[in-house]
Design a binder for these strands. Sequence first.
RNA 1: GCGAAAGUGGCGGAAUUGGUAGACGCACUGGAUUUAGGUUCCAGCGCCUCGCGGCGUGAGAGUUCGAGUCUCUCCUUUCGCACCA
Length: 879
Amino acid sequence: MQSIYHPASIEQQAQQHWDKSGAFAATESTDKPKYYCLSMFPYPSGKLHMGHVRNYTIGDVLARYHRMKGFNVMQPMGWDAFGLPAENAAQAHNVPPAAWTYDNINYMRRQLQSLGLGVDWAREVTTCTPEYYRWEQWLFTRLFEMGVIYKKTSSVNWDPIDQTVLANEQVIDGRGWRSGALVEKREIPMYFFRITQYADELLGDLDKLTGWPEQVKTMQANWIGKSFGVRFAFPYELDGKQEQLWVYTTRADTIMGVTFVAVAAEHPLATRAAQNNPELTAFIEDCKHGGTAEADMATMEKKGMSTGIFVAHPLTGEQVPVWVGNYVLMGYGEGAVMAVPAHDERDFGFAKKYNLPIKQSIAVNNETFSDVAWQEWYASKEGVCAHSGKFDGLNYDQAIDAISTDLAALGLGEKKVQFRLRDWGISRQRYWGCPIPIIHCKTCGDVPVPDDQLPVVLPEDVVPDGAGSPLAKMPEFYETTCPKCGAAARRETDTMDTFVESSWYYARYTSPGCTTGLVDERAQHWLPVDQYIGGIEHAILHLLYARFFQKLMRDVGVFGDATQVQNLDEPFKNLITQGMVIAPTFYREAENGKKLWINPAEVDVQNDDKGRPIGATLRADGLPVVIGGTEKMSKSKNNGVDPQAIIDEFGADTARLFMMFAAPPEQSLEWSDAGVEGSFRFLKRVWKAAHDHVEKSPPAGTPPFVKGGVTGDLSAEAKTLRRQLHLTIQKVDDDIGRRKTFNTAIAANMELLNALAKFTDTTPVGRAVAQEVLESVALMLNPIVPHIGQALWAALRPGSDMLDQAYPQADQAAMVQDEIELMIQVNGKLRGSITVAKTTDKATLEQLALAHEAVQKQLAGAQPKKIIVVPGRLINIVA
RNA sequence: GCGAAAGUGGCGGAAUUGGUAGACGCACUGGAUUUAGGUUCCAGCGCCUCGCGGCGUGAGAGUUCGAGUCUCUCCUUUCGCACCA
């Protein structure tokens, strides 16, 4: 065994060994329980970032741990390869998105492999290949025929200068990011997934996800947003015709306080009212400015204008004015809301601003509404109806019942369940995406592309110019014939939202190479995913869409018949949402006041003699730089640390160890160069401990391990070490397997190694205990640092392969102890401790505690009021 | 604005079921070895105090024999908000 830890050669050897032995090729064997471990696949942006390293290390630790626990493990990897950045890169470098993407994939695959992941690369999927998206198009046509996909118009961000649709990300402060033009909302036809049809199931099935973090389930439930309310109409007469203006509310109990109705700028009534009203036309035009993002809508200044139209209150017949409000969303509910300024804070502000009347219709404790300042109770559901005629005195539920009954009798409304969730628009006017498999025929309408014409292949040698979709300018792509009538027809040139590809890739991994369907019978072996790992930023959209797709695929029947998977409702049994990787920022201010961000790798930080940072300098010139905040690694703050540099300098094991040690998976992880060195130091110490042990093996040439394990009488020291060893095995098993707190698992191994370093028993039995400790440390750390694990095992057990080893088992007999230490408290404050036999009875414990010197001092002769004995922990004396 | 989290030494974090606050690591200090620097090893290290002791988990209240942990109010930070992935 080499005396120095050389990660480069150890890691290369280990990876070659794994490759050659095909250790991570997953087969559908049934002699072991299966474990499908899935990490969210990367977007091939160019090179690996720390978030990837963290994500895939967590996955690999769990995969390798379960392998050692006797599971048949499948861990795949692939590429979420369609997307906007490829189009931006294409424009910047004049290279087709396809070429850019494939280059990135090839580079990043090598990077991933250098991390030593136990991945079955034979299952790799790349979403931009026709082999993959063919089945997405196939599924699309089935869903289209089922009516789950439909067409309607929807609002997009339109850049009037570049003449193109912008993503929300491309709208900065209401302007296009390249042109700087004020962005407008524009209505265009799009295809939608009818996800609202599955809203109830998506909500209800959250209860089945016992292995998901509560916070994620809560966020999804709130996103779906099931509400119980009333949909009702305000009748009115316009141009001699009887019309109805429909609204939806969850506060029908306040209906008697309605003083106006607000409609969205896109509402037909607004359009109608603006016909002879230039001022209103201008206002509606003004409402079109700004992006479509909900956060923007919610934080912008609430503005409105009267339409001059009045509608009748459905219960009182009173005339109520209709206003256009820029805060009313056309896409949610009816695109119109009843306004009750007395009992809704937003309506209150609006009414005060525009001098609209405010009418109290709810009272809590008979209090009277005052319009001076907003009070919490105004919006309370705890109150009862007041100033509301026949409804006075009714509570929330009673009022809703009574009011909805009256509305129903008039034919003007009913109770209605509503969801906040909106249907999922998937049409994108972009090039680098999966073509939507629809042909537009003048006679037959929208016709799905038949199976024998799939896939609709996306041409790959195209460089987009940023002005509209290139496909719409390529007759060779869009000119086609109708599959139904054979007449000349036009192929759809929009592509799909890239969220679609990532909504079903987990299923495709089960059936690599399958050409007969989206998946084959192998899906039945592997699904559902046992453990899914990915960033918390995907807590809502991606995870909701993937859950939705599982239900769609189930209903289309892609999993075949007569299997348990046929009725599988949920794709991911257990979920870990990992936190972000953050790093310190450094900058210098340029003369124009702009901040020049400096990468942490180029900076030295100085500390005072207490360890507090007092300044930082740029290594290149030795001059000071400003220390900024600690923020998410990003290009804009130039605080990204390249994982490759860490792997090159310290090895993949150090990178993996640091990532797992610095924080538990769900928390954000702060990058620290010094911390990386600490992790490297630990691996060096493990290596040295094993080396010293093996090389001291007497006599020369005999195997270092002791056949038959630990036998015979142990010294007190050996007994203590062995006890700690087995407590550690138990703890680490629980930490990795149940709690998934890899940081504490590593800390426990560090403590164990520290104890071994102090161990002095050199007798054969003592040596056997030391061997047991070292072997166990190698096994326990192996999922986290598998390269060094492989090498350590080879040194400790010559001729044996780490790949074949099971996880160590804790020996309960080694954990028993006769004496325990109990803490002594007086009034809950720690005053001392006593060491007693484990079997000591309560009365004796109380006596011993009272006799304790510190207790005597605290009591000062007084009698204790009460003594609380917590077995095995403490004795608290209440004075 | 709405939804979800988080806040503990100089720093990252630990404390798993209401029961020893600060495990483990980093930084820092002192010492040994080596000495060109580094590496390695030993010891110390929450704050105040000479000491006894007191204080201490974002702030403020509450429940309890006992609260980092439970309840309420507030503050700050982070993530998501439907066309970034």
